[in-house]
Amino acid sequence: MNARDTILARVREALSVEGPGPHQRAGDKAGHGHPPAAPVRGALPVVALEAARPWLPDGGATPEERAAILEGNLARLKAVLHRVPTLHRARDLLFALARERDWKRVAWHAEALVEALLPGIPCALHRVDAPAGPAADSAAGKDALESCDAGITACEALVAQTGSILVSSATCGGRSLSVLPPVHVVVASPGQIVATLADALDLARDRHAGAMPSMLSFITGPSRTGDIERILVLGAHGPKELIVILVDDVGS
C-alpha cells in the first residue's frame, strides 16, 4: 500500500469506533452544561458559521456603522486611514506623502483606481505587471521591487469586523507588491467595506467562482512582532506602515 492509502486506511479504521459528539466531554455522563449531541457521521449537525455569526465581534449593519467600526479597528492596529471626497484629493494626498517622505520610487500595478492616483507623483514608478521589462519573479524584478519605497495596490474588500484588507494575487499586483516594500498604500472606495470575515470570503468566492486566485490574504495592520520581550515592533518583515486611502467618489 502506498502512503496515501495507508494513512486513509488508518484514519478510517480509527473512526470506525465512534467517539463523543461535539462539546461532550469524554467520560462525563452529565456533560459540562452542554447538551450532548449525537455523533453524526457525514453531516454537520449545526452549521458552525451560521451559528457563530451573532457571537463574533460586530461588523456593523449599515454602511455608516461599518465605516465607523473599520476606522476604529484600523486606528487600534496602528494603520493610517485617509478618507477623501474625490480622486483629485487622493492624488494630492499621495503627492504630499511622496514629497514628505522623499520617496524615490514607488511600485504599482495596472488597476484603474491605482492608475488614477499616479499622474504627477514626484518620483519614479515601477509597474510590477509591466508586459515589457524584467518579469516580477526574475532576480532583477525582485530586486527592483525590493528597492522601492512604497507599493500601491487596490484591494478586494475591507473588513469592518477585524480592520482587515483582503488582497489577492489576481487583482492586487501579485504576491509581493503588498508585502515587500516598506510602505503599503491601499486605495479603495467605501463601497468595498464589508461587515465580517465571512462576508469577505463569500465575496471572494462569488467573484472568482471556479478559479480562485492562487493567493488570498487578509492584511490586518502593518507587519508586527512581539518576539523580543513581547514588546510590539512594527515592520518585522513586511511593511512598517499601512496607509488606506478611501475615496468617496471614485468617478470624479
Binding site: A135, G141, S164, S169, S176, M212, S214, F218, I219, G226
Partner: peptide, 24 residues
Amino acid sequence: GTGQPLTCYNTLYGGPRRPGETDG
C-alpha cells in the same frame, strides 16, 4: 493565541501562480 482581533497576515494558498499572475 496572542490577544489580537486577527493576526496580521492570514493567507490562503490554492497552488502555484495561476496564468496571468505576475509572481509567486
